[in-house]
Amino acid sequence: MATILAVTEQRGGALRKVSLEVISAARALADQLGATVDAVVLSNGSVDGAANLGAAGADQVLAAHHETFGLYNPDGYATTIASIGGSYTAIVFAASAMGRDLAPRVAARLGTGCATDVTGLGVEGGKVTATRPVYAGKAIQKITLGGSPAVVSIRPNTFPVTSGAGKAGTAGTVAVPAFTPRVTVKGVKAPEQAALDVTEAPIVVSGGRGLKEPGNFKLLEDLAAAFGSAAVGASRAVVDAGWREHGAQVGQTGKTVAPTLYVAVGISGAIQHLAGMRTSKVIVAINKDKDAPIFKVADYGIVGDLFEVVPRLTDEVKKLRAE
C-alpha cells in the first residue's frame, strides 16, 4: 500500500506549527492516492505536540532519536530520512528554513527531483501534481512529479490545518543510521535588530501623515516586530518631512514593493503611493477617513483611530504568533 512520509519540525523540543500543515497536506494527498501517512519526528528526546499528529492525519508517528538531533542536523537528518524515504510514494516537507535545506538533500540522495515551495498539491493519472508560484509570484506553474518518491516542500501558511482526521498516530521508531556530520549547527541566536528592506520584506507596515509625529512610528515598529520579518515603510509626505529615511519611502518616487502583506496606516492613498504598493498580495488599510482612496485598493480595511487600532493589532498578532 502506498504511504506518504510527512517530515515534521521541532525546535527546543516543541513541534513547530508548520508541521501540522505538512501533516494535513500529506493527509489530503494520501486520501487522493488511497495511501497512509507516516509522520517522522527527529529529535533528541520527547517532543511536545507529537501526540497531536494523529489528529492532524498521521496514521503512524515515527520517532528518530539521536543525541545531536536537538538542533537541525543537516547531514544526520538527511541520512535518516533518505534511509527510509525510498519506500514512500511521496515525501512532504515544509518550505521552511529547515525544509528548504533538507528536502533537496533528501531528494538528491534518493536520486530524484524536488518540487519546492508548492502552494497546491493534487493527483492526476496516479501522479502527484503541484502548483507553485514562480517569477516572484508573477506566474503560477503547474507540474507533474514522476519521481519515486515525489519530493515536495509546501509553502508555510498556504495549506489549511485539519484537526479532526482522527487517525491513530501509532508510535514507531526509525533507526538513525551512522552518518558523517559534515556541517555542525553551533547554535541559534535571536535575530539582530537589522531592519529588513521594504522591497524584500514579506510584510510591510507603512505609515503616513496620520501618525501625526515621527515618534509615533514606534507603533508601527512594534507591529512590525510582532509580525516578525516585517519592514516599516513610509509615505512620501512623511519622508519629505524628515520623519523617516528616504529608503523607507514607498511610492512612485520611492520604492515599489510587492510583499505578501502590506499594512497602510494613516495613509490616504495618493496615486504616487498606490503606484508603489498596488502589487502587494494582500493590502490592509487602517484610516479614520472612510472615504480615503486607500480603501479602494485594500483587501481589508478598518475605519478607526490608528492610535487605538494599531496597538490592538500588535497585541493580536503577538498572541497569534505565540500559539
Binding site: A136, T199, E200, A201, P202, Q252, K255, T256, V257, A258, P259, A275, G276, T279
Partner: peptide, 9 residues
C-alpha cells in the same frame, strides 16, 4: 522575497 522588485525602474 525576490531581490530588487522595484517595477518603477
Amino acid at each position: 522575497m525576490p531581490v530588487g522588485t522595484a517595477t518603477s525602474q
